[in-house]
Write a protein that binds this DNA or RNA. Structure first.
Lengths: 355, 355
DNA sequence: CTGTTAGCGCATTCAG
DNA sequence: CTGAATGCGCTAACAG
């Protein structure tokens, strides 16, 4: 059996209460006694049974998720994953609450962060907007001792405990690598469609994409900024396609896939050699299956949410996480390896079989 | 607070012991009483606190992993992941043991399975070889009430509780889709390198690959079977490359990557348009970085091991799993999206930062 | 058939 | 500064 508090108490010649005091770094223990207990702890190789500890204190971890509102498909999918996590959270003694704030609004986000601090949650997960107010609010949370995990969109590393999201430079590079291979030999003209260059994720993807494409000497056209507006995206891409048949590829590095797909559908006579987009949603999945899009890079929102919760819990307990488990992959989906489930939704649970 | 056994006892007008008896489906309760208790349970919406239950019974889940021996890089990586899991298993009240059996040896595997049954573990995870003896042994385990999870390589569904591995047909199809795009327009001749066609994974990959390539009318050469022997693989590929410069692509669908890479290195004057292999190991990673291989399809061994453990635990407890979390992805790695860590190893844990 | 009681590993009053 | 006692939610003898 694993050693328990009793074993340490016996070894150190003290009572359970004293052992508990040094375990939880509480005051009221003479330095010498503390030393004896600590010696016994590391000596015996004691490890606290968190389940029992949590049972005894009736602890529940209260976590807060802050997400952008708006009709972005990916964000709504993310919210759905959070809501699923809320359902099953109770069995792990965690209570998740969820608030949404207007997208791309640093002031609103900073305010939500400050409000969070008042509620003194055990941890906060936030889809960040990198702006000074937000950084300041994040640092206030840090000072208050509340672990902060950025989700999908990051802040500078010193402002948060952990980032649950993908390496966007690598994602852009990956898109570039695929684009090059898909276009094939020869020089091509490639269009880039973006939501807004204000968000760091998008800038990073572009940077990575340029680096990967640049090596091959392709021409990258000026970025089309659709400001997350489907109609605008459709107009921009439509105009591009009708003006010129010389487009070899299109890289959609952020929001705006609905417009892109509509534009592609609107010009059935011409198809670029390669169309690559981000985020597997109902729309991009359909486009992939229809052959309008050739590849979709994806970050698994469900994984990101579960990872954020695990990391927050680990931080709250002061224990380490399994790094490999928390690394969010850059998924590449072709029409050949689409997951079975509809859209990005989690599949319904099968009834567990025998045993 | 969540309802507890006390609440049910009070509501049903019985004692804790009786509640416990019906909760654990133990005999010795009058049908009428049982019904009253069950009514109270579903009425109040009671859910058992597994942590407390496990604490009370001092339960430890004992799981057994059965892996093939031999020097296959992927399998040795898998074993490393299992050993890592063994280390951190204690904190979750699980004890993992590990045995290896000669690869591709149905008799040895069946024997190991039967031995496992004697040890009465709470669950078994096995890299299966699909053969009658093995199926029979698996069914014996099932009859004994021991949950069985197949790992990487599957058995027919009725023989096991769950499969922790990828959809190999989809993997082959994905390789085919990439190959087509990488080769570009026009008809190409494509070679396929396999370990042995005896294992179902490999047959399935080939099937998927053929389906995806066939659509495009490429010529697929007769499969080169290297029987997992690096020297043989090198010889076969080397001969092919020197005989003909007409090879547009090579798909290595199983073991034998070391030989493939050596052969490629041995013919620097000629490179097929596309080389696609399976499993990210130290060898394939290097070859990817060097541009000898264009894409590697991978299954995350760490994920598979963690998933197997979660599923086994859920089966032992009779609870459902989060399906999406247990779906093993077909990872596609280009040199652009290689994970940071060296080889397939898990990265060393970072010290947790503030909070 | 049913109830009482002690205890799992730990945290927390409340005395001393 | 230190210790004894009680309880978290649940299980398991052991009595009735």
């Amino acid at each position: 059996m694993r050693p328990t508090v009793h074993d340490i108490a016996a070894a150190a010649g003290v009572s359970l209460a004293t052992v508990d005091r040094v375990l939880n770094r509480r005051p009221g223990v003479k330095a010498a006694t503390r030393a004896r207990v600590e010696a016994a702890i590391s000596d015996i190789g004691y490890e606290r049974d968190m389940a029992a500890a949590n049972l005894a204190k009736g602890r529940v971890y209260s976590f807060l998720f802050i997400l952008p509102s708006g009709d972005n498909s990916f964000m709504r999918g993310l919210e759905a994953r959070v809501r699923e996590a809320m359902q099953r959270a109770a069995v792990d003694r965690v209570a998740i609450s969820l608030v949404t704030v207007p997208p791309f609004d640093p002031a609103a986000l900073a305010e939500a962060l400050d409000a969070a601090e008042q509620a003194r949650p055990a941890g906060v997960a936030v889809v960040a907007v990198d702006a000074p107010e937000v950084e300041a609010a994040a640092l206030r949370l840090k000072d208050a001792g509340v672990p902060l995990v950025t989700l999908v969109s990051d802040l500078p590393a010193h402002c948060r405990s952990h980032f649950a999201g993908i390496d966007n430079i690598a994602a852009g590079r990956t898109a570039g690598g695929l684009m090059r291979r898909f276009i094939g030999p020869g020089r091509g003209r490639v269009a880039v469609l973006a939501g807004s260059m204000r968000v760091i994720d998008h800038r990073e993807r572009l940077e990575g994409f340029r680096a990967a494409m640049g090596e091959a000497g392709h021409e990258i056209l000026p970025v089309l900024e659709a400001q997350d507006d489907p109609a605008e995206a459709e107009r921009l891409v439509g105009a591009l396609l009708s003006q010129s048949r010389e487009i070899s590829g299109i890289y959609s590095l952020g929001a705006g896939n609905r417009g892109l797909i509509a534009a592609l559908r609107g010009q059935p006579s011409f198809r670029p050699r390669a169309v690559i987009a981000h985020e597997l949603t109902a729309h991009t999945r359909l486009a992939l299956e229809a052959g309008l899009i050739d590849a979709v890079l994806n970050q698994d929102a469900g994984h990101e949410v579960r990872s954020a919760i695990r990391v927050l819990k680990a931080r709250a307990d002061g224990v380490a996480v399994i790094e490999a488990q928390e690394r969010i992959r850059i998924d590449i989906f072709l029409k050949d390896n689409l997951p079975f489930a509809e859209g990005e939704a989690e599949a319904p649970a099968r009834s567990p079989d025998a045993a």
